[in-house]
Design a protein around this nucleic acid. Structure first.
Lengths: 113, 113
DNA sequence: TTGACATATTCCCATATGGGAATATAAATT
DNA sequence: AATTTATATTCCCATATGGGAATATGTCAA
């Protein structure tokens, strides 16, 4: 078996850096394809293909406005990624706690003044 | 150009579902390779190869304990994913706000009792 | 040292990929 | 209708993949 399709889920879709850049630009609001082409300095077919993947996994929504297609980020699509990473939150919280503890320990060993 | 290497960053590494499962199991603490093999019902070489990818991108840490290799999740590796998804948090918060507003509107239109 | 156990690596292959180039589709303008 | 503008799709190809099978490496026990 080869690697899972980029369209198999949001995790695979956002693995591609360009697609994350696209989402970053869509975070501030609706953008046309050409907007993205100009801002990201990618070829138009590339942008369209990336948007297609993002659309397939529900990370963006589209509507037509005349000749343009206006894309926007879909929060509900990104949310599962946030929730999954959140389950590991205590790991770096612990690490910070340990760092803090060590700092305090050190302070007790050699108090200021 | 083909797809970016799974070892190019944490985003690519966690795109693989098995690797997320491995991380899920490591979330509760240190585990040996064999523990993971048994719990995830994967072949040992598969687990070792996935762990290698996770290690290369800094998502896990290892230490030797006799014949065993004990792996643990590395919070600092997962944190960037959490931070990135967090930048989109307001998108689903807005959506919830709108849902709430609509519900309240509906309640005003047809008040109870 | 020999054998058993635990883990890692290598080789093979079908498969999906992202970019480039060319082309297709669709809507507005003249 | 013909042209221009905006976007999407198709074809091609080098490349990295994940699993299976086999093998290598490393450690403990007798």
């Amino acid at each position: 078996m080869a690697r899972a399709a980029t369209t198999s889920d949001a995790f695979n879709a956002v693995a591609e850096p360009r697609r994350r850049e696209i989402l970053d630009h869509l975070a501030s609001g609706e953008r046309s394809v050409n907007d993205l082409v100009i801002r990201l300095r990618l070829e138009q077919p590339s942008v369209s293909k990336h948007l297609r993947v993002l659309r397939d996994v529900g990370l963006v929504r589209v509507r037509r406005h005349g000749r343009q297609m206006l894309y926007q980020a879909n929060g509900e699509g990104i949310r599962p990624l946030h929730e999954w990473t959140k389950t590991f939150e205590r790991l770096w919280a612990h690490q910070l706690t340990r760092i803090k503890e060590r700092a305090e320990e050190k302070a007790r060993e050699s108090p200021p003044g």
